[in-house]
């Protein structure tokens, strides 16, 4: 990444993170107590905690130009939460693109003074790439929610199926066998 832009991002990192965090928080229902933003105890406020921690790490990874896979855990943590909250898919995912807004707002002057538009575009395409990863994670979470329902039903009927001899646990060896065959 352009060194100048990187320096600027680093300099303003905390302001950008805060801007981004606040923007994400605005996607939640209006709440005059500001609980999600203010409560810092990670057990009393897991949503706020996950988003605060995750947004900071993701921004760091973007600035440092780290392989995006490294920051995926934090991305996963945030998306896992948003996937079960009352959002449409686009609303759930919009938080990624909000980084762009935060960077532009916080660095507006510096970018135009230093003619950093090309560098900014390059940085922003990293964010687009991140969004693609995010989309994968989101759809996995949603798929998992469906699987959980099926698994729950299976657990409930476990004894019945077993008794009626309708369930047969395939011994591990057979699995291994099958895998072998596939590999050959």
């Amino acid at each position: 990444m352009d060194m100048k832009l990187k320096d600027l991002l680093n300099e303003k990192k905390s302001a950008i993170t805060k801007n981004w965090f606040d923007a994400i928080m605005e996607t939640y229902p209006t709440d005059t107590t500001g609980f999600l933003k203010k409560q810092k105890d990670m057990f009393a406020n897991p949503v706020g905690h996950v988003i605060a921690e995750g947004s900071e790490r993701i921004l760091e990874a973007l600035i440092e130009g780290e392989e995006l896979t490294d920051s995926l855990r934090f991305l996963d943590d945030i998306i896992r939460v948003r996937a079960v909250q009352d959002f449409t898919p686009s609303k759930a995912m919009a938080f990624i693109f909000l980084i762009k807004k935060s960077v532009r707002e916080e660095l507006k002057k510096e970018i135009s003074q230093n003619h950093l538009y090309d560098a900014l575009l390059e940085f922003e395409s990293k964010i687009d790439e991140l969004a693609l990863f995010a989309l994968d994670i989101y759809s996995k979470c949603r798929e998992q929610l469906n699987e959980l329902k099926i698994d729950e039903l299976k657990r409930l009927t476990f004894t019945l199926l077993k008794k009626a001899n309708l369930m047969y646990e395939i011994p591990v060896e057979e699995f291994e066998h099958k895998d072998l065959k596939c590999n050959i």
């Binding site: 939640y28 693109f97 790439e129």
Partner: peptide, 26 residues
């Protein structure tokens, strides 16, 4: 996770600006 193929992504701001991400204050 495998890296996704590069596809044409929306222009910066295109998506975010078209979505009303804020919740209504009522």
């Amino acid at each position: 996770m495998a890296k996704p193929e590069k596809i044409k992504t929306p222009k910066p701001g295109e998506i975010a600006s078209s979505i009303d991400f804020k919740s209504p204050a009522t």
